[in-house]
């Protein structure tokens, strides 16, 4: 099964944990991944595990999830404007259910701290889990700093990432050249992280022929009022 994303959905594991440095685009990727899977007819759950940021989080997209048949699992405090770092659901029970599970984690090591307590659960499903470390070159962070940030995140999450994802972009102004200019950076980051590049994320408005396989085309879901 291969959709127009030029990315083989069979390569996506049942459970995807999305980690990354602050503001690297984790939520946008998490929501896009769940949309892709849902459109391919898969049962999808998306868990909002962000305990750091009360803004721009997965739970903001609930009405879209309802339309697409995606089940949102989130804290009762998400989108309440209450800045409360709580997780009010049972991730173990959710992980044991059939279907895909996308887990959107808060940024940096402070966000990854929410994962630490689930170490035992994740061990149980080891074969089914992809732990993705997302980075964006344009977030003013060097490959060495990106790799260092991963080590801090892994220490807090008590988990090791299994792959990196290149999500280098300049928001709405991203052009094909910006993506091309990120490849060298991505390779260096992957080398320092000692992990394979699972795929490159490309905004949907960029021509589809330019890049090879292992590209996921995404919508930009977080928008300003005036856009």
């Amino acid at each position: 099964m291969k959709d127009n994303n030029r990315f083989n959905l069979e390569n996506i594991k049942r459970i995807n944990i999305i980690l990354g440095h602050y503001g690297c685009g984790k939520t946008n990727l998490a929501v896009n991944l769940s949309l892709m899977l849902a459109k391919a007819g898969k049962k999808v759950r998306i868990a909002d595990l962000d305990i750091v940021n009360p803004y721009f989080r997965t739970a903001d997209f609930n009405s879209m999830f309802e339309k697409e048949g995606i089940e949102l699992v989130s804290s009762i405090y998400a989108v309440s404007n209450l800045d409360i770092p709580a997780i009010t659901f049972d991730l173990e029970a959710i992980a044991s259910q059939d279907g895909y599970l996308i887990i959107d984690v808060g940024g940096d090591d402070s966000g990854a701290a929410a994962l630490g307590r689930y170490k035992n659960i994740f061990e149980k499903y080891k074969e089914d889990i992809e732990i993705i470390y997302v980075f964006n070159k344009y977030r003013m962070i060097t490959p060495a700093e990106t790799a260092e940030c991963l080590r801090e995140i892994e220490a807090c999450a008590r988990l090791k990432a299994t792959a990196v994802v290149n999500n280098s972009n300049l928001g709405l102004q991203t052009v094909a050249e910006d993506i091309k200019n990120s490849f060298e950076y991505a390779n260096e980051t992957a080398r320092l992280c000692k992990l394979p590049i699972k795929y490159t994320v490309v905004p949907e408005w960029i021509e589809k022929e330019i890049f090879g396989d292992n590209v996921i085309y995404v919508k930009r879901l977080v928008k300003a009022v005036w856009e």
Partner: peptide
């Protein structure tokens, strides 16, 4: 070179 930043950052 341009980079992508939050207003606060």
């Amino acid at each position: 070179e341009k980079c992508l930043m939050k207003g606060n950052e």
